[in-house]
């Protein structure tokens, strides 16, 4: 079935299968920042935005993207890079595999929460797992990014 959507501000028409999930569709169209790591909707690596809201693209049926605005990290070069610079300066990207999804969550949080406390930051990002860093460096980076350090 054909869907029409906006991907990173560009209108596209894609052919998708009924049981195809958005993460796979995005990867097949070259949006390789979208990573999959759990198969059970709970690691957060595949996080993209749908109409500005963070979603697990591995669990969104592709045809539900019809008429929606999808954003991946490739579509936010400036905003994402600003935070990625800080994250990397902390060394908190480590293997980097979880970083794109994590950054999409951080940017969504910045849009959604005003002056979040440390507890609110941790709570908002709980759905993004990371096995390398132990999360402390990510938190340091976020605090610098939000100017709450």
């Amino acid at each position: 079935m054909q869907i029409e959507l906006t991907i990173n501000d560009k209108a596209v028409k894609w052919e998708v299968a009924n049981d195809e999930f958005l993460a796979d569709t995005l990867r097949s169209h070259g949006f390789l920042s979208v990573k999959k790591a759990c198969d059970t909707s709970c690691c957060g690596l595949c996080t993209v935005w749908m109409d500005g809201k963070s979603m697990l693209s591995c669990s969104v049926l592709s045809l539900r993207a019809h008429g929606k605005k999808i954003t991946t990290i490739e579509g936010l070069p400036k905003e994402a890079e600003e935070f990625a610079q800080i994250l990397s300066a902390e060394g908190a990207e480590q293997c980097g595999f979880c970083s794109p999804g994590f950054i999409m969550s951080v940017l969504a949080m910045k849009n959604e929460l005003v002056n979040p406390t440390e507890e609110e930051i941790i709570h908002y990002l709980t759905g993004n797992l990371c096995r390398c860093t132990g999360y402390m460096g990510q938190l340091r980076a976020i605090k610098i990014y939000l100017g709450v350090a």
Partner: peptide, 21 residues
């Protein structure tokens, strides 16, 4: 010195540099 990883920005920004990519 706390020099950032030379591949840090590429991997953080989701560039296609892993096996599957």
């Amino acid at each position: 010195q706390s020099i950032r990883k030379i591949d840090g920005m590429a991997i953080a920004m989701g560039k296609p540099v892993y096996t599957e990519d």
